[in-house]
Design a protein around this nucleic acid. Structure first.
Lengths: 203, 203, 203, 203
DNA sequence: TATGAATGAGAGTTCATTCAT
DNA sequence: AATGAATGAACTCTCATTCAT
């Protein structure tokens, strides 16, 4: 069993993730490893000791984002009204990631990503979603993947309008969620096949 | 008076655009000019003779998309029911153009783009949209830019699911368009500022 | 025996030379063949029909310059005072070429050049020089190549100061020519070997 | 506090400068970074780690030249006879540095260059020059910039004849310096304007 | 003969990754 | 374990020259 990481290694790892978050957020995924390492006050070599390559670093950021999302999903279950809980979850997801260019790129599936994230996010979405569905607050032919699609679409708007009207996604939030409610417009096309129940990342 | 373009030049230009469309679609805007030129069976220099830089090439692709879109917009006005015409326009836009990564990147405004495209697309959207609105088929607080946002969101879904369920965007089409109809869910956030009434390109 | 060139060919050749003169003068030898051809109102292909490559075109320009110089050298012999004639020749050389970047580059030997030019210029310098020397107005140990060196040095100053003080070379003209007069400062080093009696180009 | 430069980095930097000196000297400033790096036995990337671009590398070469020159200028002041000191300075400058095409290109100001070099060289020239002038060994209407012009002219000759008669510049050394002595030939043109009292670099 | 489109080697520069220190 | 120098492939873009029209 591996000995616990040395304390400074832990600190450096955290510094790198923080730096990457900031730099990626500002300049997108094109930012260089050198820049990130420098921003973290470390050498590039150190970055590569912690993350085998740029994508692992991105994954690590996404790890945190996913973890935060999973937390939010659990927290949200404390809300008694299942529908309100679900709306809250979507809102928090969007709020958390709106101002972060790289995050949006990852969410939009522009980069390779650890498939484990898919499962985590699916799992996190599932319980709030199913709870609301069981309560009859979601139409019968809707599926978790629809929630993923909705988040994706909102992210797109958020991404495209981040500079000019960073709250614009809220304009479409009720419209899109309305689609999940019972008695809404018909859904003719079947959703994604089961193994594709990936809520957000590559949808 | 300039002699007409040489036949092979015309052919090559088309080949480059076609190659760029395919390569950009597959690998995104990061694909290199060398790859595109090779894919077209031409030298890089030729690519640069036709397009001063990578962005002009992207613009050219977008030119075609815009032209096709403008055509569709005009054709669609022959339909008597304004709402049906509008729905048809959105459907054709989705069908025709946008299962493609680079196109979405351009749609998302991630790259510099000929601002003329904005105007063309705005103009094309405006008449069908206003006609439906005048007919009372669109809610009063909706604007053309909302139509742009809707197209954008559908494009995103179409793009993200192109491989696994290429018709999935149709599942969300009625939901999103429902948002434009009178008496729908509330729209709390104001849309983009007036000068930004750009339906699709940078939303 | 070759038929005389067609009239338009002659005209085009002249247009190219004139264009090259202007463009080279303005932007130096780095200017492109495309620019020159366009400036001449012709296609590049035509330029290459007349001149096998860029250097031949430069040589052609130099041809004219050399011819002009040879003319000046002959004209100058009409002056009775051999020394005055020589000074006039140097002045006219500098005046003619000072404001022409490419010409200076060629004069300074920065580019390959037709060696025939060397001979022509040497020949042109020789008579005025020898006449002054025979008249006892030039020291016995001076040679034609020294005149070449002097022109070269003045060109350098003219080149370096073209923008800030385009007449500065005149400040050093009397000083340098003084070196050729009898009784001047000693000349210890032997001049260039005979075959190198090349006055200006690569000295 | 920064740790001392790595030993190999120091070695590589020197190798690059040496390689650049040789390559530039042989082929002029057009030589490519790839060639220089290869000549130094290094990758291009290394060259760019040490020098942000080609011009910085050129500057670095010039740094050394300037430093050597400044040293020579100080050393030379130990000579009691101010005129002899000045002559010695010019001789050492020529001997040390400038049989080299790129150096001359830089001297001629054809490339962007660190303006600090101007100041250093001006400063280095000033004291020996003023000392000789104060001693009445230099004519009243001469200025430091004239010394710069003289060095430049000699460099040109040295460069142009480096192969065939590498000592030829010495033939003109006394002639040109004679121009600075009192009672010499008239200097009609004013020298460069005050802010341009840059002895060598861009004259 | 004139044209200008096509070519492709080569330029300067960047950056993910490796490895000597 | 940390550093940052070294690497070199890859990128965008230019231009002298060739050749189909």
């Amino acid at each position: 069993m591996p000995r616990p990481q040395r304390k400074d290694a832990v600190r450096n790892r955290a510094a790198l993730i923080q730096a990457a978050r900031e730099i990626f957020a500002r300049r997108g995924f094109e930012a260089s490893m050198d820049d990130i390492a420098e921003h973290a006050g470390l050498g590039v070599g150190t970055a590569y000791r912690h993350f085998a390559n740029k994508y692992e670093l991105a994954d690590a950021i996404f790890d945190d984002a996913v973890a935060a999302f999973v937390n939010a999903a659990e927290e949200v279950l404390r809300e008694n009204d299942p529908w309100k809980a679900l709306v809250g979850l979507v809102e928090r997801t969007l709020e958390a990631q709106t101002f972060n260019r790289a995050m949006r790129e990852i969410l939009l599936g522009r980069h390779q990503d650890d498939p484990e994230h898919h499962r985590s996010m699916t799992a996190a979405f599932v319980r709030p979603f199913e709870r609301a569905k069981a309560a009859g607050q979601i139409r019968a032919d809707a599926e978790v993947s629809d929630l993923g699609a909705i988040v994706l679409m909102l992210c797109t708007v958020a991404d495209a309008t981040a500079n000019r009207n960073p709250r614009l996604w809220r304009r479409y939030l009720p419209i899109l969620l309305q689609g999940l409610r019972p008695g809404g417009a018909p859904m003719l096309e079947p959703p994604l096949p089961p193994e594709a129940l990936v809520p957000v990342n590559s949808l």
